[in-house]
Nucleic acid binder design. Structure first.
Lengths: 340, 340
DNA sequence: GTGAAAGCGCTAACAC
DNA sequence: GTGTTAGCGCTTTCAC
């Protein structure tokens, strides 16, 4: 049998309430008894039963995190940041990792509700429809969405300024003298990808460049294979690009593989910039990538959740996060005369 | 207010017990009432409160998973597999990710105990001393260790047959005609690394080869940087190797970077095999790697936990898992006359 | 077939 | 300063 509060009380010859006062450090307890109770707690290694606390207080002190399994590591990074931030506020995180398109949503949402989580963070969960989120809201469970968000009342959002991120990346290429710049991204079904594509187009527009249609490779999803296909197309373009901006490091993996096979070098033969700043550091060569401040994202997510727990009716807010460019020198300097 | 069992009972005009019988599908309930109760449950979207269930049954239906944050993705894979296996048995997983050497252990163990997890899976947690594991055992919480294990009574283990894995990798190189084969691993503080090194040595011994001391690069830890340093040493060896076996894909990242910088190609100039089969598929070129069957590991971990929950006194057992060689053709065929 | 009731371990309002 | 007590939502034994 595990030791419980009443055991402590009995051993110390006091009531449950007094033990409770010592544990929560509130109310008056004589110094003498306090010492004695603390001694017994330490000695017996008593740890309060969170389940009982949860039942009593209608707070589980557990936060749910719905995320995707993904070969890229950004979700792992966010998950880690969320865990750390939650722990600081005395919460634990129940992470449910969904495999895209698996139809596990209902079960997962029910599991979270069943455990009476105090809030839910949804990270880049493309597959999760508003209906499921509604199930949480009905029950007054605060929800924060990260990166791929819906504009729903009562749902707070953390929005990465992807337009600025991709614009900065493409501008970096422009400053280095590139004018034939290609884009590799996923289908424009989601806001993130729309923004990243818009950033690309805007930066070019500022420079007075109209990109060839062939230079925009919009792939069905994020994968190494998609990266391979994209670069294959680009290398066969009527006018081939001198630089390629990709909306995910996972595309970069495929791109680098094809270049490697053909004996083309980065940045000598082609300049590259990726996105997420996760895998990019591990590749050959390590590539410049747009990075996200993961800890900041985790902190904000928890903060928004806590805010809404205190005041469930507060109107939804949207926190903007600025990405940064992690330069690993994979954009080559080009001379004027070389440009198109 | 969330809806609860008594609400269902009231709406159906029956007692709590009858609703309970319907929910758990045991005991006799008239078909009529059953239908009515089921209808109301569906209509109201009632979801049982796991916290109350947990308190009553002294079972949280939560399993703890202690793991490491790591740029390699093996833990993410294992985590995913554990989640899936747990879900199949009606459990959820509370994953606590530790950053090596951070001293978070006590807090994390206490959190798990506080939540009264029904069992704990410990994955490759080099930093976790037996003392902390003892805290769990004292409380009769079943523990399964994966990969880096201690030989403790009542602790079940999942042991990867790393000796066989690395032996197979090195034999593969030998079959292809290599005789100058180098080893890049982490310090031999842990059994995994000892086994992997032993497999390397045994395979060479079988072939009657005595490796140069310089060919064994035992690095302080797993990192890209360590991979870079190791290959640097190997390229400057008195007699340079034609093939390199690495105990982690993360080393391969660094190795490939250095080779790339020097214009050396894989497998033309150097043959490579990695370990874990995670990052290896993403690199340029994708490299042959020793892979672990992650789902199997997750399944076994959960199975062992469930077994011990039923029968806490059962003697500790150790499940062996065989790795496999994922061939991506990064070991070049060598002619006889080229060998040493 | 169905219901009443005790109690899981803890919290907090209230009484002394 | 300290103790008593009424639940939190559910399970399950026992009685009818």
């Amino acid at each position: 049998m595990t030791i419980k509060m009443s055991d402590i009380a009995k051993a110390a010859g006091v009531s449950l309430a007094t033990v409770g006062r010592v544990l929560h450090n509130n109310g008056y307890v004589s110094e003498e008894k306090r010492q004695e109770i603390e001694r017994i707690i330490k000695e017996t290694g008593y740890i309060p039963n969170r389940i009982a606390q949860g039942l009593k207080k209608s707070r589980s002190k557990i936060i749910g995190h719905l995320t995707l399994f993904n070969p890229n590591m950004q979700y792992q990074e966010i998950s880690s940041a969320v865990n750390a931030a939650a722990a600081e506020s005395g919460y634990q995180v129940l992470t449910l990792t969904c495999h895209q398109g698996s139809g596990e949503e209902e079960q997962q949402i029910n599991d979270l509700i069943g455990h009476r989580v105090d809030g839910v963070i949804i990270t880049s969960y493309q597959a999760l429809s508003q209906e499921w989120i509604g199930r949480l809201l009905e029950r007054q469970i605060p929800v924060v969405m990260v990166e791929r968000t819906y504009d729903m009342p009562l749902v707070d959002r953390i929005v990465v300024n992807d337009l600025a991120g991709s614009k900065e990346a493409v501008r970096h290429m422009l400053h280095k003298g590139h004018r034939r710049i290609a884009f590799v991204g996923a289908a424009l079904d989601y806001q993130v990808e729309k923004d990243r594509y818009a950033g690309y187009l805007e930066a070019l527009k500022e420079a007075g460049i109209v990109p060839l249609e062939q230079w925009s490779q919009l792939m069905p999803g994020y994968s190494v294979e998609a990266g391979r296909k994209a670069i294959d197309e680009l290398l066969h373009a009527r006018v081939s690009p001198t630089a390629v901006f990709m909306t995910s490091d996972i595309f970069a993996c495929g791109v680098l593989q094809v270049l490697y096979e053909r004996g083309l070098r980065v940045p000598d033969d082609l300049s590259l910039i990726g996105y997420d700043n996760t895998l990019s550091a591990l590749l050959s060569p390590p590539i410049t990538s747009v990075g996200l401040p993961f800890e900041k994202i985790g902190d904000h997510a928890i903060r928004l959740l806590l805010r809404r727990m205190e005041d469930p009716g507060v109107s939804a807010c949207s926190v903007g996060i600025d990405p940064f460019l992690m330069d690993r020198h994979t954009v080559r300097e080009r001379q004027e005369e070389q440009s198109l």
